[in-house]
Design a binder for these strands. Sequence first.
DNA 1: CGCCTTTGACCGGCGC
DNA 2: GCGCCGGTCAAAGGCG
Length: 360
Amino acid sequence: MSSGGGGSGGAGDHHGVYHQHGYGHLARADADAGAGAEYVFHSSNDMESFFFNQPASSAGVDGSGSRAGAADELMPPYSSITDYLQGFLQDPSGLARHLDAPCPAEDAPIKHELSVDVSHDSQGTSGAPGEGAAMLTPNSSVSLSSSDREGEGGQPRRCKKGRPNAEDAEGDEKEQEDGENSTKANKSKKKAEKRQRQPRVAFLTKSEVDHLEDGYRWRKYGQKAVKNSPYPRSYYRCTTPKCGVKKRVERSYQDPSTVITTYEGQHTHHSPASLRAGGAHLFMPNAYGLPPHHLMPSSFRPDLMSMMHPAMGANPNMFLPSMPPPHMSTPSPAPPLQQHHFTDYALLQDLFPSTMPNNP
DNA sequence: CGCCTTTGACCGGCGC
DNA sequence: GCGCCGGTCAAAGGCG
């Protein structure tokens, strides 16, 4: 069973990252846009993060996990939310472009939130289409965040005892070092190298389920208790050979209803779900786009998107799960809801010209 | 039988 | 140098 992380809750957040983060400055906050259009942007050296606020939706997706079903009926431009993120991972500047997007006036009750925190490292060049994805349930809220250097250890920390295989894919760099040894020179070199990490994207998802279906198959390879948190953190690796994508799932201890899923790396293959849904054409590698219906609430509101950049210094690897985003704390009445479904492609393209593929 | 989770040990980085 | 901590390994067990 298990599909996911098992019953126990997910994982807690890890203080290590958390306390080091902080909301930086707001570059912009158009509360007056009437509609609660908010773009809160924070920037830091290594990462960018921003929030997408989404209204409650009626998504016609069956949140239960029946991802196959949903995927089968929809033909989104991206097979998964991470596909969507792929673009950011490859070109974070895209986030900035979002800031210029016009904000529709109407607003909606912010119920779903999607925050994204993106940054990437020198290595995110894989160019592979596909990406980890998070299957959202209709009523869940999501946030993403990514960083290029995971502050603490995200991954290639190189502690592997040695294991040939799939990981090699991502481990090529590790290979070089493992070579041996260990001279100090090498050490410093390693240090430099270890800094280069795969792009990471973290989602904050309101969900009771810890391990969200995202269309890819994952194998849990570890679980650790998180300090200062009653919830453990689970480590997953994509089961596809040669695909070194990993993800961590943990539950925020401050907001147990929030699950933090951090994806690391880029899939070198298409998600099984997307293939089922229609094939590779669903992917639009190298282009930005919005998450597909089955991954996002049907009433996605680009206009509610807000961006933020935690001015986190040393640990940009994660979005602060437990801290309420700026826009969330601002007491503002929920404006009338204007539904912008993903199917409103023209609108999306209009709003995010640089991120939307030409046509679905 | 194959795939996946569980779990304790191990490793390396980092701060004190 | 030491201890803490995050991340990973790998054996064992469970499940379909």
